[in-house]
Amino acid sequence: MSVIKIGHVNLRVLDMAAARNHYENILGLIVTDEDSEGNLYLKGWDEWEKYSVILSPSEQAGMDHIAYKVENDSDLDSYANTIQNYGIEVENLDAGTLVDCGRALRFKLPSGHIMCLYADKTVVGKSVGNVNPAPWPLDVKGVGAHWLDHCLLVCPLDPENQVNTIADNVNFLSQCLGFRLTEQALVGPDADIQAVAFLTVTNTPHDIAFVPGPTAGFHHASFYLSSWGDILKAADIMAMNKVKMDVMPTRHGITRGETIYFFDPSGNRNETFAGLGYLATPDMPVITWTEEEIPRGIFYHSGELNTAFTEVYT
């Protein structure tokens, strides 16, 4: 029984035509479906399930929910029990409630974000197929993102009032769903406040991450590219398309990832993330960043936080 990977993120967008152009032609995702309510379903060329991104028309930007895939259908029953016993209410969703998925669970993380678990989603295959595949497809658009890599969520933190939903999320996901903490930042006079946390269910440095804020929100969805050269080309393509970038190509200390941060046309932040950093097997000791080195943990070269990155989210 295990959670095996990030499944999808459902983002709310203000202008669907602009959003479609961004995710399809600039990020290079492939549109696989569109429903009567105007939701658009997309996947990366290197993904096999039908979608990893759902775009939903809305008057409010941000994230609707994030979903992870479990190994077996029966895991859903076990996880439903575990989550309920932990004290979190679980909603059982019939097959098809999550489009093209089997039955699913829906619940709120301690931070207030909605998470779903599913075991089965329609498989349409990678663009390069499964037999004697080419290393990449010739017809990929834009920056050619491989897959949805992870999301970072903004979680309420108010230590003076004993509120730390980052730590609460870490406890819940570790105890109930088998996520493993890979990196953290500890802050405060006694360095005992877990203010930043990165967790994985695979062998990559993170499949989900949390940073603090006054209100719950969506910080970014990250899409995988394979090399630093791809990151440079991605920045070129974004500049050609006048995409608003808030962090130019650089490296993270945390995860060692090579990165660009930019916004979709509704202000939801995206990242292109290259390099797999390191192998995060279950026996890897947790990496800790101290408070004074957090800026270098986030932007390794400058060692400085920028206000847009730390204060802007949807």
């Binding site: 933190l157 802050v187 603090p212 804020g213 408070e291 004074e292 800026p295 936080l305």
Partner: peptide, 12 residues
């Protein structure tokens, strides 16, 4: 809406 403010990360 400060989510991280460097030296005063816990004091937003």
């Amino acid at each position: 809406r400060k989510i991280l403010s460097g030296q005063k990360i816990w004091n937003f």
